[in-house]
Design a protein around this nucleic acid. Sequence first.
RNA 1: GGAGAAGUGGCCGAGAGGCCGAAGGCGCUCCCCUGCUAAGGGAGUACAUGGUUUAUCCCGUGUCGAGGGUUCGAAUCCCUCCUUCUCCGCCA
Length: 428
Amino acid sequence: MLDIKLLRNDINAVAEQLARRGFELDVDKFQALEDKRKILQTATQDLQNQRNTRSKAIGQAKAKGEDIQPLLAEVADLGDQLKAAEQKLSELQAEIDSIVMGIPNLLDESVPEGNSEDDNVEISKWGEPTQFDFEPKDHVDLGLSHGWMDFEAASKLTGSRFVVMRDGMARLHRALIQFMLDTHTAEHGYKEVYVPYMVNEESLLGTGQLPKFAEDLFKLEGGQKGEQNYYLIPTAEVPVTNLVRGEIVPGDDLPMKYTAHTPCFRSEAGSYGRDTRGLIRQHQFEKVELLHFVKPDDSMQALENLTRHAEIILEKLELPYRKVILCAGDTGFSASKTYDLEVWLPGQDTYREISSCSNMKDFQARRMQARFRNEAGKPALLHTLNGSGLAVGRTLVAVVENYQQADGSIRIPQALQAYMGGLEDLTI
RNA sequence: GGAGAAGUGGCCGAGAGGCCGAAGGCGCUCCCCUGCUAAGGGAGUACAUGGUUUAUCCCGUGUCGAGGGUUCGAAUCCCUCCUUCUCCGCCA
């Protein structure tokens, strides 16, 4: 959520900024609503003031034993007026809120212009695309031929875009998770957290998945109390970031760095026909997430650090990758600046996204009222960041494809061997 | 799942229709006193938001778990929900 004051004072500059990412802000509509709000709110508060003053007078008169009937007559219709005014104001406020909640974050100055992923800019490259002296297969062929991946079984159990993994592949998948968590906690200073995989609506509003992107989520029916409906998390970003929702943390506690492994559930609405083959785009996948809560001045540096922590996983696994900065049109709703890490996939003969690291600045914090006590002792919004470190399913794909041998076996990266009981190869 | 109890500022805790944004204590900040230590005295100390503009000040409004209701007036009374605790049951 953007600062409402910024919208009131400098809406044209905001609109101009948002146009960079292709978002059109209806300036006239917003200002018309704001003008109405100002008048209505002043009037309402004036009525409230009258009510309070007169009620107080009644109380004092009563205490002195005076006759309060004349006073009561004076306030007779005040209540109805007030109720009507409050009603109108809250309707108007709701309308303004829904507009404001639908406005994306302002982009950082360093974000390049552009409309789509084709305009993203490569920042750096690590390693070279893996060379083979045979025709490399993609992970689906490799997985199927050994019975390691079973998409048919998964579709029987559930449906399309799920997988069953068996034997060494299932273990390799698990090993990756342990390896990533251990690296981030032992070497990068993160605290590990375990969080719910279902969250309520407030949490999704806080991180920005709602109200705009409901169709991307799995919403649960039944089994929950009251009228509250739960959602499956689309990323650990939601539960972990919401840990600070409504909190005022001591300034000395910042920066806070958390890592969490969770499954992620995405409906992938609107992506029909894309990446239907294999593990690239599943309804359920595992991810190890990195999150920072920092003071505003530190967030740009924190984004560099966080991205670097994700890069190190790829380097330890010796997987060639490149780092790109997302252009204005490709940067996500809540993000101010995003780096994607793209790993080399021989099966697709291209780089594919494996991590996305973003600085949300105060956008999520404002929605969540996540604050810290600054030097002056006053509460101030903190900054939130998150990134994948890494997407486990896609990392598995990268390992399988880059480490494949001519005979169809998979070499196990050095860094993972300890997590595989010393195993050096996955063979049939 | 059943029975009961409770949610008040950074923390503890009083408050039971009006004089309550809220006693008192702890903590924190500033000042005074004190040779050091320990102790003592004084002042200040919630958040959001409107007027209102970078900010301060001032005035107003809202907030005592959340949302409704009763009332001229609600932390206080009523209803619904959420959460926590205790006991019982069930369970990985």
